[in-house]
Simulated assay, not measured.
Amino acid sequence: MKQDVPPPYTAVTQHPIFPVPSHDEAARYNFLANFNKYLSGTVAAGNKLAYETRVLPAFRAEHGREPADRFEVRHAMNRDPWHRLWSACRRNSMEMRQQNGRAIVLRQIDTLDAKARQFNEGRDTLELDPSVAVPRYQGAVDIHCMPGSYHGEERPGDVSAGANYDSGLFATTGGQLGALSDGGGQALVEWIKRERPGWTPRRILDLGATIGHNIVPLALAFPDAEVIAIDTAAPVLRYGHARAQALGAHTLRFVQMDAEDMARFPEGHFDWVQTTMYLHELSGKALPRIVAEGVRVLAPGGLMFHLEQPQYTPKMPLFEQFLRDWDAFNNNEPFWSAMHALDLKQIMADAGLPRECQFVTGVRAVADRSIFPDAPAPEEEDYGRTAVWNAYGAWKPAA
């Protein structure tokens, strides 16, 4: 398989409750996967060329100075025809992805709901609480253009939001997260095995779990641990629990809960508290509260671990900050820009994790060799074949 061509959508592992695409629906996802790859590579490269040869010289001529921040770069770039074309194509590709996933799910919603019930009913590993309110910062916007966001229901008690989310992840990432879109979770397992060989956490907590694709690998890797995944959205929890059961993670518990208030868990209850690409979907008020609650329920000597995009620092060029900001203004990620400009290390320190206990590391999604048979070993360069995140972590000081 060529390195620059995403794998076919049919490579996705269709577990028992995975939405089954028709020939045309799969073809549409294949087009979108390759279109996204082309946009992020060949076409996106033109943004920097436009900035350096047209936009920046014009800004200097008009203002007599360099841009002061990423926002000035954005306003200047938004007038450039190349960037406008790239941006419009990228936005439309996401809308097409969401509408294709929604069409796939609604066509078979009766079957999907029935399958989910078979895995969910009669099990105490799914705890839904209707009294949990959807935070306004989550309910006010359709996150990354997903109709109804994570909380939307076509009818009461359905799994449509989770099924749509699951069906499109593979196409959106061009297969970089693997056949089960769990490359982030697999990366967590590989990282902890290298960092702390033989460490066996007793309890693990995943915040903002959605469909659990990042926590299932941890639950399978530590079968004797109590693993809990929480989210405020019932539809994705219903689907995620059924998905986990179908994949053999039978003891993984899905609980509807707001991470700002985890009073049901005592202090020091968990050995590992973690998030994966979750912090950027939190408001400026919610994020420090959730970090503080996570630290409260973390045991002395335990691990807090957040997989995220890198923070904006003075060392990061303004053009890169601007380009990374695209999702905040064009992909319904309203807190993206502000979150990446926060001092996350200070927030963790204020919550009780001193800076000397903190670390930042890079974590690369584990390549699925059934999709990329020629993928290099984890310690080798993979030339952009898999997703890479920054990880912000800390080992809580012993009591």
Rank of each mutant, 00 (worst) to 15 (best):
M262W: 00
G152W: 15
M257A: 12
Y9M: 08
D261C: 08
E356D: 11
L32D: 13
G240M: 06
G157L: 07
L344F: 04
R60L: 09
K48P: 11
P6Y: 06
M77Y: 13
F270G: 07
M96L: 14
G101K: 08
S87G: 12
D142M: 15
H213R: 02
F119H: 05
L205G: 02
S87W: 15
A26N: 06
E121C: 00
G157R: 15
M77N: 07
A391F: 12
P81W: 01
V227R: 15
Q186W: 06
H213T: 05
Y312F: 03
P147V: 11
G393P: 05
V297A: 04
L303K: 09
R136S: 05
G294N: 06
R203H: 13
K115E: 13
Y38H: 14
Y29D: 13
Q3N: 10
E72W: 02
C145G: 00
P223C: 07
R289G: 03
C89D: 10
A398W: 14
G122V: 06
G248H: 01
S167K: 02
L56G: 09
P130K: 14
E281G: 08
A394S: 06
A233P: 11
G184S: 08
L85N: 00
E195C: 01
I371N: 09
Q256W: 02
T173F: 10
A76C: 09
K315M: 08
E267K: 03
D231S: 08
L318I: 11
K2V: 04
A11P: 00
A219F: 15
L169K: 14
R54D: 11
G284E: 14
E379D: 10
G174F: 02
Q3V: 03
L287G: 04
H23I: 14
A242E: 14
H250F: 02
L342C: 06
A140R: 07
A351Q: 11
T232N: 11
L282Y: 11
F305C: 04
Y51D: 03
L282S: 05
G352H: 03
P156A: 12
N331G: 03
P135V: 04
L32T: 04
P201Q: 09
D382W: 14
F319Q: 01
F335E: 09
T172C: 04
D350A: 07
N164D: 10
A249T: 10
K37C: 04
L207I: 13
Y29C: 05
R194F: 02
F329E: 02
S131P: 09
I371F: 13
P373Y: 03
T276G: 12
